[in-house]
Each structure stands twice: as structure tokens, then as C-alpha cells.
């Protein structure tokens, strides 16, 4: 490849040569520097909403959004300067200040990107406490439970539903602190064009979206002497089973693609 397709920059004091068109996040990763992200899902949700991935670029006012912004020749980047670390800590604090923190009983406990970041940042207390959003849990859908008291408004679910599944059942409603993920006229997911594919759950970094748990019903059916119980696996389930056995998933858009965990 011709020389001009490469870009020279400095990340945390290290001279880095990267391909043109790379994001700052990717360039940092290429030299082993981990920048936390929350809302970022490669190719699917590249919006820069959560602000966790901010970095300092010398000579620029304000922080750069590393998950989207491309590298430029001569950039001098600081990914872990005191100012950046403080800002990330404040952002995380703010997110946690408006989050139902019932981690112990949460379906995502131990596998939650937000929880992992809280551990990574050694969050021991929340500095900016205040009003919390109150949402009623929507569990009317046969397969998806939505608890927006845990939503961090990363919008990965929206992007997945709209851009990957091409359904567009959900979008953002209201403004500012009252923003929330919603459906047309704020109906239950049961009553809109949701196809129950469950990809939004896969995309969600927190416990705001989860599968409906039917274990009790299965047990009940199994215990029912008069019932002949058979198993039928949906395509999505087959993919999930395959994943458990480490088959590659070509359509992967799940949480493991964002980092931060």
C-alpha cells in the first residue's frame, strides 16, 4: 500500500502508524490501549452518545469522540490524562445516578457492561445523586421484558432494530432528562410491529432489556403427567446454542463487540 495511506500520530506518548480511515479507538486498540465505551457498536451504533470514549487531542477545544473520530496526521492524543479520567468518572457517576442499582437480582449481573465499568473505575459511592426516572416495566410482550429504570439511553437497541433487523419498532421519545426508548404512542412492545427477534436484548449493555423467563412454565409442563412435551428450537435459539459450542456467528451484533467488558 502506498505510503500516503498511512497516518502518523502519537497516542499516550507512543508513536503510532495506522491506516487512514481508522478511528482513534481502533488506533489505540492496535497498540494495546483500552478506551472504555458504552454506546458504541461497530457499524451499527456509531453515534457518540454516552461520551465514555472521549479523549484529549492536543490543540483542540473539548474532547474528541474516539469511537467515531478518525485519526489525522500528527494528532497527539491522550487517552488517560487526568482530565479525561475525571470526565469519564463524572459521566459514569451521572449514568449510575439515574439507574436502578438492584444488581444482585438483575438478570445481567456479572455480565453487564455498566457494572463492569463501575468495577473498573472503582466506583464506591455516587457523587451526584438526584431525581431518578420512573418507568413501569413492560412485560406484556411474550418474549421481551423492558425495564427502563435500568436504561442508559445508549440507543444500541434502536440502531439494532432499525439498521440490522430493519424493523424500527422502537425509537427515542421525549427530550432531555425525560428521554426514553419508546414505541409508537408508547405502547407495549406486544402491541407494535416487534417481531420478537430479541436482537435488542443482545445489543443492550445493561439489564434494561431481558428475555422473558419461562422456566417455571416449562417445569410445570414437564411435571404434568397428561402432557406430552416436545422441544422446538427457533433459529435464534439454534444460533445461541451454536455459540455456546463456539461456532462463529456471521451476523454477530452483540455486546461482545462493544468493549468495556
Amino acid at each position: 500500500m502506498a505510503e500516503e495511506n498511512y497516518i502518523n500520530l502519537t497516542i499516550d506518548g507512543t508513536q503510532v502508524k495506522t491506516k487512514e480511515g481508522m478511528t482513534i479507538l481502533e488506533a489505540a486498540k492496535s497498540v494495546g490501549i483500552d478506551i472504555p465505551t458504552l454506546c458504541f457498536l461497530k457499524d451499527i451504533n456509531e453515534v457518540g452518545d454516552c461520551r465514555m470514549c472521549i479523549v484529549e487531542v492536543e490543540g483542540r477545544k473539548g474532547f474528541a469522540t474516539s469511537c467515531i473520530q478518525k485519526v489525522e496526521e500528527g494528532m497527539i492524543i491522550h487517552t488517560h490524562s487526568p482530565a479525561v479520567l475525571e470526565a469519564r468518572r463524572v459521566i459514569l457517576d451521572l449514568i449510575l445516578s439515574n439507574h436502578h442499582k438492584d444488581c444482585l437480582t438483575c438478570s445481567r449481573s456479572g455480565n453487564c457492561e455498566l457494572q463492569n465499568l463501575a468495577i473498573k473505575f472503582n466506583v464506591q459511592n455516587i457523587e451526584y445523586t438526584g431525581k431518578q426516572s420512573e418507568h413501569t416495566i413492560d412485560d406484556l410482550s411474550p418474549s421481551i421484558v423492558r425495564d427502563f429504570n435500568k436504561c442508559i439511553l445508549c440507543r444500541r437497541c434502536i440502531a439494532t432494530c432499525k439498521n440490522v433487523q430493519k424493523i424500527g419498532a422502537i425509537d427515542c421519545m421525549n427530550r432531555g432528562f425525560d428521554s426514553c426508548i419508546s414505541t409508537v404512542n408508547n405502547q407495549s412492545l406486544r402491541d407494535v410491529n416487534c417481531t420478537n427477534c430479541g436482537q435488542c436484548i443482545e445489543a443492550c449493555p445493561t439489564g434494561a432489556l431481558r428475555e422473558k423467563d419461562n422456566t417455571d412454565e416449562v417445569w410445570k409442563a414437564l411435571k404434568d403427567e397428561k402432557k406430552y412435551v416436545i422441544v422446538q428450537t427457533a433459529p435464534a435459539v439454534r444460533v445461541a446454542l451454536g455459540e455456546e459450542f463456539r461456532y462463529a456467528n456471521r451476523y454477530k451484533c452483540n455486546r461482545k463487540n462493544g468493549n468495556g467488558s
Binding site: 453515534v47 457518540g48 452518545d49 454516552c50 461520551r51 470526565a87 463524572v90 459521566i91 451521572l94 449514568i95 445516578s97 439515574n98 451526584y128 438526584g130 431525581k131 442508559i152 439511553l153 427515542c172 421525549n174 427530550r175 432531555g176 432528562f177 425525560d178 428521554s179
Partner: peptide, 21 residues
């Protein structure tokens, strides 16, 4: 600003609310 924040990014959506509080 709390009223007019679009709610897209965290610092403005939650941060201005906390400042106002």
C-alpha cells in the same frame, strides 16, 4: 437548558439536571 437538552448525550442529559438540582 434542562428543558431544551435533546437528551442524546449523558453529560448534558443528566448532568445539567443535577446542576439544576
Amino acid at each position: 437548558t434542562v428543558d431544551e437538552s435533546c437528551g442524546k448525550c449523558t453529560p448534558c442529559r443528566i448532568g445539567t439536571k443535577r446542576m439544576q438540582e
